[in-house]
Structures are given as C-alpha cells and as structure tokens.
Design a protein around this nucleic acid. Sequence first.
DNA 1: CGTAAGTAACTAACCGGTTAGGAAGTATAA
DNA 2: TTATACTTCCTAACCGGTTAGTTACTTACG
Lengths: 191, 191
Amino acid sequence: MARDSQDTRRRILEAATAEFAERGIAGARVDRIAASAGCNKSLLYTYFGNKDRLFETVFDSLVAEMVTAIPIDTTDLAGYAGRLFDRYCTHPEVVRLALWDRLERDGQGMRVAGIVAAETAKAEALARAQGDGSVSALLSPADLLAAITLVTSLWPLMQPHDESPSPARLAEMRTAVTAIVSRLTGPGPAH
Amino acid sequence: MARDSQDTRRRILEAATAEFAERGIAGARVDRIAASAGCNKSLLYTYFGNKDRLFETVFDSLVAEMVTAIPIDTTDLAGYAGRLFDRYCTHPEVVRLALWDRLERDGQGMRVAGIVAAETAKAEALARAQGDGSVSALLSPADLLAAITLVTSLWPLMQPHDESPSPARLAEMRTAVTAIVSRLTGPGPAH
DNA sequence: CGTAAGTAACTAACCGGTTAGGAAGTATAA
DNA sequence: TTATACTTCCTAACCGGTTAGTTACTTACG
C-alpha cells in the first residue's frame, strides 16, 4: 500500500462524509470511519484533531462548495430553482449534513463567513431585481431567498417514501418546485 | 412521595420528550431522562421497554396530537397556515422530533396509520376546493399540502439565528409564511 | 400478608481518544 | 556503495469513562 498522507486525508474525509451524513455526529462511529477509510483510527486524530473537528472540516468543505456551485440568475429564478433542486437531489448528503448541523450544533456550520457572504450577495441580487420590477416584491429579498432554499433543498423530505424516487417521480417533484418558485417570483394575481 | 404509576409514566414521557427533542435518539441519554423525570432508570424499562420504544411512544403521542389539532379550512388557507405556524412556533419540540425521526429512523414515525389518514383527508379537502375553483390548481392536492406543511413548520429553521426570536420578528415571519401560502393558493398571475 | 411500585448496585459492551513503537523512505557522511 | 541518523506515515494495543440494560432487593399500600 502506497504511503500518501494527502490521499489518506481524502479517504478519511470521504468516509466521514458518508458516516456523518447517514448517522449524524452523535450516531457516527470513529472506528467505522477509520475502517471505511482503510486506515488506522489514530490517523484520524493526527489529521483532524477529534470527532467534532472532523465534522466541521467535512461540513465546511462540502457546504461551501454547494453554496457557490450554482450562480443565481435573477432573470430566471424558476430555472435557478430547478438547478438547485437537481444539485440537492444528486447530493443528498449535503442536505442531510446541513440538517444534522442545525439539530446537533444549532446551525453553527452555516454561520461561516464564506456562506454568509454568498447568501448576502444573492439577497442583494434579488433586491436589485425587485427594484427594477422583474421580480415580485411579495417577499423581502432575504425571505425570498429563504423560501427558494427551503423548497429546493427540503422538498424530497416532505414526500412519503424518501428512498430513491423514480426518474418520473423526480421530474414531477421538479415541476412542483419550479412552479412554486415561479408563482412566488412572478407577477401578482389578476383582479 | 406518593406512588402513582400513571404519573410516573407521564413524568418519564415529559422528560423523554425534552431530551429526545434536544439531542435525538443517538444523543439522548437514558440516565438523563430518568434523573429529569425524578425516578429510577429501570422504571423506564419496565414501562416502555427500551430507548427506541420510548422514542416511538413519545413521537406517536405528540405528532398524532399535532396533526389533528388544527382542522384545515379550505376557504382561508392563508389563515390556516398562520395557525399552523403559530402552533409549530409554540411547540418547537414537535418539529425537532419529526426531523430526528426523518434523519435517524428514515421517517418511520410519519408512516403511522393515523397520520397518513389525517393527511389524506386534508388532501381530499384540498382537491374538492380546487374542484370548485376556490383554490388554485397550480399544485396537486398532495403537493399543495406538502408545501404548506414545509413552509409553516420549517420556516424558522431557515432563519440565521434560531434562538428565541423577538415577538416582532415572529410577526414578520408569520406575515411571510401567510403571504407565501396566499400566493400559492390564490388566483394565478395577471396577463 | 401480598402485590404493585420503586431503588441501588451491577455488568457487559461500547467508544472516543492515547501511546509506544514499527516500517518505509530520505539525507548524510565515510 | 553502505552504514547511520532522521523524518514521515502508519498501526496494534490499550485506557478510562460512559451507556443501555438487568437483577436482587426494599418499601408502601390495600
């Protein structure tokens, strides 16, 4: 077996991501992560300090990437929502990690400077779009962003059977999500 | 100390609710529940079997009550959403328990017959309201119900600082939630 | 007394974290 | 080239505290 500390770190992070996403911090087992990464448990401590710091590392790298992966498009927010939904569907670990973070660490992970800055920038873009009238001002920019995030990331959570929906069902869900965002951002009702 | 097994059961359930809501199943400590209930740990086993069955009992009684507490009013869905929001705000343990259930038990607790039946009934009421045109058919009945539940229960989760929002902030959030539901259920955009 | 309610003490397994040291590679110097 | 010293990467074994669950026993009440 080749000795490569960088690769070992990567394997540990990969194993930790899966374990934490499935079981959370309290439910995760350090021995299981080490076994799954194919290395000794103590390496996990030399490289990442302890269980909590390992979770932090996993969380920061994954969620930071997610939050910047898809640029906001204020000229087509329904399309933006659809792309967000797609990404959350193909990366369900990220959603689960964010939920664990909220429940077990009071959302500490979401209060990192990078994430806050990215969200602020998106809210400002929404504010500009509302200013020129291309997006409904029904909600404040922050609330509209919250609504889009809520619906796109947690919609699958509301469905009765969570596990591996069929492509057809997935398309249905996507349609519902984009319809919701379209209605929230489009012009108001006729009267 | 008076000997009252019914009251002891109640105290255990109360303590278990708080402990499970805060820490989840894996994070909850049986000793802490017993101490908080002011009784011996073994009583918890004689009355409820084991840790998991205790969670089930807590979950079933709490969520079943929540799901039937507020009758749906298809003539004023925004008002209905507001009342749901109020109740979720005054009973945050229920929301947290439902999230723990989703993450740690794959949503097993939500698949109880009573809950499923109540949700089906609500969806049917929505279908009727859509049939007579009083509610927008933008979303399917099930999706509309999911959207209302999602927004009313998890909206506070999307806010930056979770802990004890001021009454003013709470009112703002309530306004946003009812505005969303109103827009989703009201007539479509002007053209 | 007899039974239901309650307790203290215990156990076996688990789990996060540590430690002492070994194996493999690299630089140095004779 | 080769012996030596040193560094990096890694491991097996261990440790102390914790935790779910049990058991033998005591207490209060009808």
